[in-house]
Write a protein that binds this DNA or RNA. Structure first.
Length: 370
DNA sequence: CAATCCGTTGGGGACATAAA
DNA sequence: TTTATGTCCCCAACGGATTG
């Protein structure tokens, strides 16, 4: 099955999965936003960044910690990595139970977090402990009966934000969407030590204060490249690569036909990706609504999440059915090339492979940090 | 008419408390 | 120790109302 547009898909979802809601189109739209986040999250994981990701955490503005912003995903250097055998742990798998195998956590004040609940819901990037040097994060892998526990650095090297940006059905122009775009743009432009300044030519210049107080300026792309490639880990502190992921919600623009919202975002994030209508539809139809038999637990988890009852969602970026998580990870890994085609790069004029390489380079070079 | 403001619905997280 | 519940806060999507 294929859909002419995301609008058609949203209408269909509103009439089926969300028929219980008082405003079912709104509920369907809300859920589409959750799915964009899910696709992005699993794409990051197939890129080998599972250990680095934390979800919905506060990131301070650069040199202005009075103001911070919740960001969808932030990617942090791994200071130390541990693996724990959880085969002997009876669910729920909690921070307290994991600690028994991790002496370095003794004496720490644990969060009351369940990494795996007794009804089979996995918590992605569960924060076990919050320490001055950074969070300790756990991810359980039910296929291997292991939990990977990573001590992360406080300062992220990259952030990823997901947004659906467009107009309502039947409207010619979206009123609230430009505000959302500007909010995202504000965050993107205030968290990193690398500042973006417009010159009279219309080009962007990069501006960054190095650790010794000297300034490095130059064409933005050039300075950005230099910061990513540089070898000394602490040459420029607090540099954060910013990545935005947007999707359509009206049959109204494409990545080749940008409107104002898209322009605002693409000049604000270092990278702006566009999750295509076709990609999102392929995910929803092929994995959730009409999945092959081996993926039925995925669709089941999705539908079980939207019943009108509170507290039963098992299909979000944070809490997901453990079996569905396993199948999604496998599917995304096996279909990595297809998934990468779901994303168009809006800016810069580079390939997705470059972004992946850059994220890897940033992740690795700061591992030894501290 | 675009831009802005704001209310409603839905989803979620942190944290505290109490009962099982 | 686990589970359920409640409070407070934040964010996203949608769409009506207002403004200039």
């Amino acid at each position: 099955m294929s859909y002419a547009s995301i609008d058609a898909l949203q209408r269909m979802l509103a009439d089926t999965v969300f028929s219980y809601a008082s405003d079912r189109k709104k509920a369907a739209g809300r859920a589409l936003g959750t799915l964009v986040e899910t696709v992005t999250f699993y794409a990051l994981r197939t890129w080998g960044l599972s250990d680095n990701v934390v979800i919905e955490r506060r990131v301070p503005e650069f040199a202005n910690p009075i103001i911070h912003h919740n960001v969808e995903f932030s990617l942090h250097p791994v200071r130390r990595r541990h693996e724990v055998d959880v085969s002997e742990i009876a669910p729920p798998v909690t921070a307290a139970k994991i600690r028994r195998q991790l002496p370095f956590l003794s004496g720490e004040k644990l969060k009351p977090v369940q990494v795996l609940t007794s009804n089979g819901i996995k918590r992605n990037a569960a924060v076990l402990v919050e320490r001055d040097v950074g969070p300790v994060v756990a991810n359980i892998d039910i296929a291997r009966d292991r939990a990977v526990v990573c001590e992360l650095a406080t300062q992220p090297f990259a952030i990823v934000e997901c947004k659906r940006v467009g107009v309502e059905e039947g409207m010619k122009k979206g009123p609230q969407t430009i505000e959302k775009a500007k909010q995202g743009a504000y965050v993107a432009r205030s968290v990193s030590s690398l500042q973006k300044v417009r010159l009279r030519s219309g080009q962007f210049h990069g501006f960054v204060e190095k650790e010794d107080g000297s300034l490095r300026t130059g064409p933005y792309a050039e300075v950005l490249r230099e910061l990513i490639e540089q070898d000394e880990p602490t040459g420029v502190p607090d540099f954060i690569l910013t990545v935005g992921v947007v999707s359509n919600h009206g049959n109204w623009f494409t990545s080749d036909n940008p409107n104002k919202e898209l322009r605002v975002l693409s000049q604000s994030y270092d990278w702006l990706l566009f999750l295509t209508d076709a990609g999102l539809a392929e995910f929803i139809d092929g994995l959730l609504l009409d999945p092959p038999v081996e993926l039925t637990p995925v669709g089941d988890a999705f539908r079980a999440s939207y019943t009108g009852k509170k507290g039963v969602n098992r299909f979000t970026k944070v809490r997901i059915d453990a079996r569905a998580d396993l199948l999604l990870r496998r599917w995304f890994r096996e279909h990595r090339r297809d998934v990468e085609r779901w994303f168009n790069v809006i800016s810069p004029r580079e390939s997705l492979a470059t972004l992946r390489a850059d994220l890897w380079r940033l992740a690795e070079k700061r591992v030894s940090d501290q």
